[in-house]
Structures are given as C-alpha cells and as structure tokens.
Design a protein around this nucleic acid. Structure first.
Lengths: 234, 234
DNA sequence: CGAAAAATTTAAGGTTAAATTAAGGGCTGA
DNA sequence: TCAGCCCTTAATTTAACCTTAAATTTTTCG
C-alpha cells in the first residue's frame, strides 16, 4: 500500500486549473511524485526522462490527442493509462480499454473517484510484484522463502543479513543502491560503524552467486556510489 | 516535503515593511533561507552569487519593473517566479503566466495565501526535478540511477564526480554554469584549489559524451565564466 | 601581431574506497 | 555446557578514482 504512494504519476491535460486540482488532490492523498504536462510534447519529454508508473491522459490535447500520445508512450513504457474523456466522447477505442490493462473516466468526475481509480489501477498493475519469491540472477536462482541459492554446483543457504541485502538489491535491480541505503535496510537508521561489515556480506553474496567472486558480473560495485545488481535477463 | 523548506527564496519589493513581513511569515513557516532585495540591481547581484530556487518579484520596482528583472534572471536561472501585482494591473503578460511554470498574486493578499502559492510552486517545480533519471544529451543518454552513458559505441560508466557535475550542468542546461558553482557542487563550500581538477573531469565527461571530445558540441566552455551544457533537443 | 591569460590535454602519482582474508565473540540449539 | 554458525572487526592488499603538474593549444587583448 505504502509502496504505491511512491509511484510516479504523470497527468496530461490542457486545462491548468484541472491539472492543478488533480495534483493537489493526489498530493493530499499522499502521492508525492506527481508530474504534470499541458501537451503531448512536454508529456513525452517528461516520460522519457523518468520512468512513470501510471499516466492520466486527457483525450483532447492541443498538439494531438490522447490516443496518439498513448501510442507514443507505449513505444517505451508499459505503465497503465487512465483516459479523461468528455461525456458522449466515449468511442470504441475507449470502451475497448475496459478489457485491457487501462481504464478511463468521464468528465466531469469526482476527485475521490479519480483517486480510487488510480489506486485500483496501481494495485492491479503492481501488486504482484511484491510477492515474487524467486529471484533469477544470471544462472542462479534465489528462493527468498527458504533462503536458498540453486544453479551452482551445489545448493547453498543464505544467511539472514545476506537475504536482506539481496532483496534490497533486487528491488532496485539494474540501479545503483547506495551503501547508505543498503546499511539502512540491514541495520536500520542507526548503522554507523557497519560499513565494513556490509562489504564482507557483499563478498559472501558474491561467493554464493557469482562464478568468479573476484570478478563479479552481477553484483557490481560503483566506487563512491554503491552497488548494482545486474540480473542479465533480456 | 522537508527539502522544500531548505530552498532559497529571493523576495524583491521596494516596500521595506512588506519585505519584512513576508520574510517573517516565511521564517515562521520554516523557510530559513529567504533573501530580500529592494531593487533590480541588488536582486541580480544576489541571484548571481547564489542559486535561488524561487523568486517573488513585485511588478513595480524603483529601477525598472518585475518583467525586466524577470528577463534578466531568466538568462541564468530557470527558477520559478511569483509576481506581486496591484489590483487592475494584471495585464496580458501576467495572465500568460497561468499556463506556464510561473504564478502571480494580487496585492493586497493574505500571508497564508502567499505561503500556499510558494509551497505549491516549489512542489510543482522540484517534485519532478529530483526524480529525473535519464538525461538526453545529443544522441547519448545518461542514466543517473546507474551512472551509465548509452548511445555511443559502447555503454560506459561515469564516476562519482562526473555524475555530480553532469547533474549540475543538466539542472542548468542551456545556461552557463560558473566554475564556482560546479566546484561547489562537487567539493562543497571549501573547494579552493580544485579548479584544475574540475577541468580534468570535464575532459573525461567530454570523452564519454561527445563524438569528438576536443571539439565538443554539448559541453561548451564559456571562457572566463564556466561551462554550458547544450542538450540539442528541439 | 605578439604577449599574456585561460583552457586543453596527457600521463603519472597519490589517495581513498573497496576487496580480501582471517580471527574472535556471541548467540542458538543440541 | 559445548559446538557450530553467523556476524563483526581488523589488518593488509588492491585497484579505481582523483589530483597534480607540466607541456601544448587556443583565445584575448594591448
């Protein structure tokens, strides 16, 4: 639930007042990462520069329409879309959405209603992500339920700390995770003095996950920044 | 939320009482980095010497007007502006703002109202700034979450210092960033002696971002001033 | 045009963050 | 109580990154 609030939402509408209203409502609901754009061009710019989790698109836009924008967005993003449409405007393209991963809402709508739809759609789209128990990393598989690693010569067990760290890395796979964030995950707020310990655990993880622990291909260090988990699936 | 309070705000007005009042209110709201100036000249001085996050400009000023000042500020800052305007004074230039990134408020106004506008504008402007992950520069793309540059023959990694610098340049893209500002970003207040080092890092960035590092098309030097990042998007 | 200033460029050296290894202490379960 | 495992600590080594410096080129300005 909490996770959902941190998702990035992009709202595209040509009416500034509506835009601001939606933004304020979402903010008051706890969505702090809301971006807005008044037209297709700026929407695409924003969406390309940061990964959005959900789009809210007005069907009518000054430099095109919601469907054109939708098609452009789909070229690089799978995030679900909620269309804002005027009454009577609902054509087949819109009705077709009911079956898919997207949704629509007819203007004028109650603020509460939009929030509900957004929450529902986010949950539907991202709920299953949290419950993943098998982490595939290269040719190894980590089972988070019983803390085992298979795929190597022998199946090995992960310790408690190692499990926490690999989970944290997995949540942010293909992104650099700062040492601070890793320490925080393992020891809580007050982790001063455990930085060295972290390195040892990383070493152990490498011994259990990598072919060559000293020339890692999956747990990559970014000196001065942190570590990055590269999963290798394409 | 908290970070917004630490942003630097510059308030420009020729009435000392109003200036004091605004400063007090903002202080009591938790904005501890508020600067004030009574005229355009001093406003420009202040704004040039430290990076402001938001400007509050009276339309009427002794040595010019808010719009002239606005145009001058825009030469080196992309921070949003709130204009203070007298009733009936609201002309088209002001109304045009409703669509853009800026805002205005009609005098006399309630203190609470100004604070709300400031908070909303800061949120709108910086909520998305911090979360930008992909910087598109020419045909290369910098992913700030993994410190990588794609688009060249091979994907290359950026180092910690290089990442800080390219981010700082990006924040001020298409504007000159002074050497001082870049040094400040990379080494903090006390950067004396690192100017040469800065140049070497710039060189490395050029090697990673430019087709021809010795004839740069994106990281342009402004001799005697600093560097400018030209992004090439139209 | 010529000198001075500023910026570029290269490579080597130093510094510091991370890797590595091993040992000790504490908790847990038999 | 004791054995075994896990976590931490610490000392040493390694290597990536940052800085420095010196030579060279470019720009500015008298």
């Amino acid at each position: 639930m909490d996770e959902l609030l941190n998702k990035k939402i992009l709202v595209v509408d040509d009416e500034p007042e509506l835009l601001r209203m939606i933004e304020d409502i979402l903010f008051s609901e706890g969505f702090y990462n809301v971006c807005t754009a008044p037209d297709c061009a700026r929407a695409l710019d924003l969406a390309r520069s940061q990964t959005m989790a959900l789009f809210v698109l007005d069907v009518n836009l000054p430099d095109g329409n919601g469907f054109m924008l939708y098609n452009e967005l789909r070229k690089f993003s799978r995030a679900p879309v909620i269309f804002l449409t005027a009454r009577g405007e609902a054509d087949d393209r819109i009705r077709g959405l009911a079956l898919g991963a997207d949704d629509y809402i007819v203007k004028p709508f109650l603020a509460k209603e939009l929030v509900l739809r957004i929450k529902a759609l986010l949950r539907r789209t991202y709920a299953s992500e949290d419950t993943v128990t098998e982490l595939h990393i290269g040719n190894r598989t980590v089972d988070t339920e019983n803390a085992s690693v298979t795929g190597g010569a022998k199946t090995v067990q992960l310790t408690a700390k190692e499990l926490i760290l690999i989970k944290k890395l997995w949540e942010n796979r293909n992104r650099i995770v700062t040492n601070d964030a890793l320490c925080m995950a393992a020891w809580g707020e007050d982790y001063y003095g455990h930085e060295n310990s972290l390195m040892v655990h990383i070493r152990h993880l490498r011994e259990k996950l990598e072919e060559g622990p000293s020339s890692p291909r999956h747990i990559i260090t970014a000196k001065g920044l942190g570590y990055k988990l590269v999963t290798d699936d394409e």
